[in-house]
Design a protein around this nucleic acid. Structure first.
Lengths: 249, 249
DNA sequence: CTCAATTTGTTCGTATGTATG
DNA sequence: ACATACATACGAACAAATTGA
């Protein structure tokens, strides 16, 4: 077995899908500009070390998606109407996070069985006696970019149920002037879209996502908000100022 | 055709992988708590509308990952110690970034033709007259976790070439006491491993990655370090204190 | 102790999808 | 386009372990 074959065998996803995903990314990231000619089948064959039929299958897939056009004897060309994504700056700070989520109206999803309240890590405060569970899809310009699943302390929810059913929960929380927030902590990992997520975000299954786990703790040490927000991986971007809190030598 | 079948057909990823992904999320999100019994094969069969053998294949995968335990006649149970494989905390702050990269010895990769120096965005300072290009694989416990491609200002490199060829570039930079760093900025996006990256990180092609673009600017406004570090997406985790700089209401 | 219900484990034949040369 | 090999997926039947009546 050669070295490249090993690379493929690390995943059980069919090879032509792996190749297609790579090509798709090159187009969407602008590495291959709209209108440009992409590598010939032979070059791709060479690069990815797969049979000709396999690259063809990959390119065919992209054609079905409207990302490329193939012309016999000429080559394969990137479609003109491919737009650059990556417009969502993910907040790494409370005020900008609030500002961001206030910009879009969530569409709420009915929930049949609320899942159990997730366990909290050390330092994430104590649980409230009861929670309300809310799910919503966040969109901008009719394009869904995140799926939010949120546990909000029942006591807080009861203060303004209609607000919680029409706005993003964090926006409502921040609007309560008397609530003092002692800690707001977020963990971010990279995941892949499962069926439900893929459905709501209108992305292919297993396409990369950013999962934000956010816990907000009030002055009494109670976790008043425990949320899991799944973002489309290809929409987001983080800007981090490494010197924000401390100067370096 | 029902809704599930449609979702399946949209994606050509094997069904048992799709089912496995959904179950995996239920466990990791705490929907199915550690120790709890998950749905029976029959129920899963029903829910996902797939054959028994297919759900079994999915559950088998989760067992191999150590997420569940199966017992004949009893059922399938979520493991008690769902271990977190995201051991790499990506730094969002200069000092912790330096601390992290000092922990591991990079393996340097010979470079044939250095790529051109990347363009800088507005506010990312001015370019140095010349750069040195270095590539290295970062590992911990023999497990590669990142591929670094770095442009370092030639003037800086010449001060201690051997250091730059044995340690991570940022670690060397931070060890120069007389260098004042005016800005250190990092942009993070989610990408997918290309052939070369997949090879070096020993991951499947197109598996999710975190691409960090880091620019370090000295007191004269010169970009002394321009690096692109590609991390394995499944190893990393970002901890963000949303209130770090400013308290909230 | 036995029986029945429940639940996972195993096997077979068949059809289709993936990948190669 | 063809022959070949292997993976995926189905349905159905049967086996084995566990539990409680």
């Amino acid at each position: 077995m050669n070295a490249l074959a090993k690379t493929y065998e690390r995943s059980r996803i069919p090879r032509y899908l792996q190749v297609a995903a790579t090509l798709r990314r090159r187009i969407q990231s602008g590495h291959w500009q709209p209108g440009a000619k992409i590598s010939t089948l032979e070059e791709l064959e060479d690069e990815f070390q797969v049979a000709r039929v396999t690259v063809r299958q990959a390119v065919e897939l992209l054609q079905e998606e409207g990302l490329v056009q193939r012309r016999q004897g000429k080559g394969t060309f990137v479609a003109q109407n491919v737009k650059d994504t990556r417009w969502l700056r993910l907040a790494v700070e409370w005020s900008s996070l609030i500002a961001m989520i206030k910009e879009n109206a969530p569409r709420f999803i009915p929930v049949r069985e609320p899942p159990p309240v997730p366990r909290l890590q050390a330092g994430e405060g104590r649980l409230a006696p009861r929670y309300r569970y809310l799910r919503s899809v966040q969109s901008r310009n009719t394009e869904p970019y995140a799926l939010a699943s949120v546990h909000i302390a029942q006591q807080l929810y009861d203060r303004d149920p209609s607000a919680f059913q029409s706005q993003a929960a964090l926006a409502v929380v921040s609007s309560f002037a008397d609530i003092k927030i002692a800690r707001a902590h977020q963990t971010l990992i990279i995941g892949g879209a499962d069926m439900e997520t893929a459905e709501h975000l209108k992305v292919p299954l297993s396409s990369p996502t950013a999962e934000a786990h956010c816990v907000v703790i009030d002055e009494h040490g109670i976790a008043i908000y425990v949320g899991e927000i799944i973002y489309r991986g290809d929409f987001i971007k983080l800007d981090i100022d490494l010197l924000r809190s401390a100067p370096a030598t």
